[in-house]
Design a protein around this nucleic acid. Structure first.
Lengths: 221, 221
DNA sequence: GTCTATAAGTGGATAGAC
DNA sequence: GTCTATCCACTTATAGAC
């Protein structure tokens, strides 16, 4: 009947759940409240989901699919730091700005402490791959002689990326406000850019004179 | 009667609440459960606290007092980076290891998203003073000619300290496990030390040769 | 697939005896 | 200050009619 709206009831339930849980947390949201907002009977929800936890699971599954899609759109296959950092930054912003995803990332952050699937996603689908990505980058840079050999690329990856991870927590736990989300993203992006600038300037200066921009020039080769 | 145990009922209620809430979160803990574990009737709790939220408030008040006490025990009044970093690190470990405080800090982190008092404590009593402290330090270092003038001390403070803030979130949200807490603290301390080493080495190398340890020598004056 | 009705339990909180 | 008894709103979930 009302499927003309473009979305089936199942999707509407999920979307309302995302709205409510991202605002108030999993425990504070009831099936009743979701049903009311979707404008169906409580019991109808059980025709689409086994129960409350199952709705939550489907939200995380949806996040995994969506972030995979975004990941596929972007290909990073350069070792030119200038392009690289810009690409990585764009990728981050693209994820954070995606309408469907931003609220789910808020849910992931606020449910980390009690939901294993949120914890797993954050650690294994987000943090770990990021560390590995940047480790690879720094490894290549050391091989190219851009960074002193004595540094461990994994350590550099953490030094570089933990700053960003803090910004994520700051965004979703300390500053989060749905109404001002867009300007928060802008702040975050500027903050991250400043960090990138500082960090690469720092590691590029080693053993050199004052040529602080060397990292942002084209690869000599 | 049973106050011979050393603690009054009011304190026992608070301590049980800390145990339970730090494990399961505020919403998942009921007055009923607290009463059962304290071994008193539910209604007796209302002789000591106005209600559930009031227990939570008293926990945060307790945290504020305790951290003030720890703060008073430690005095940092040097600008010798070697001593300074060690003192600051000791201070952090002391806070994180304090039996009464560690579980409350877990509560603060997991309730940031819905409890204004937790958010206020974290932002205004913890993050902000830390930024200010390190900003002051870097300002002094710039004045002493240890760091290039072009850097903003506030920016340096964030670059330095956000790493630590991420470690705090990692401890309480990503890795938290009451049983292995002590070894987690050890990991965190090592990680932080490595960061301190790296960061001060980085900023000390600017415009200098390879004298990477210059920051950890005594003040020439 | 949607509804009404209802089960069966849990939540915070209060009244009043002792 | 502690207890028993109770209130009632709210919770997830199911049964069965349409």
């Amino acid at each position: 009947m009302s499927e003309v709206k473009g979305k089936g009831t199942k999707e509407r339930i999920r979307d309302v759940a995302i709205d409510l849980i991202s605002e108030k947390g999993y425990n504070a949201v009831s099936i009743r409240e979701i049903a009311r907002q979707v404008d169906i009977a409580e019991s109808s929800i059980y025709n689409h989901y086994k129960g409350k936890e199952n709705i939550m699971d489907s939200i995380i599954e949806y996040l995994k699919e969506e972030s995979k899609n975004i990941l596929n759109e972007i290909s990073i296959n350069t070792f030119d730091p200038k392009i690289l950092v810009k690409d990585a930054s764009n990728f981050m912003v693209k994820i954070l700005e995606a309408t469907n995803i931003k609220k789910i990332l808020r849910i992931v952050c606020i449910e980390l402490y009690q939901n294993e699937k949120c914890l797993d996603f954050f650690k294994n689908q987000y943090v770990e791959p990021s560390y590995m990505f940047w480790t690879e980058i720094f490894k290549k840079m050391i091989e190219n002689g851009r960074i002193m050999k004595k540094y461990d690329p994994g350590m550099l990856a953490r030094e570089f990326y933990n700053y960003n991870l803090f910004l994520i927590f700051k965004l979703y736990l300390l500053d989060y406000n749905e109404a001002t989300y867009d300007s928060l993203i802008k702040e975050l992006t500027n903050d991250f850019s400043s960090h990138v600038q500082f960090f690469f300037e720092m590691i590029s200066m080693q053993g050199k004179k004052k040529n602080s921009r060397s990292f942002f020039k084209k690869t000599p080769k």
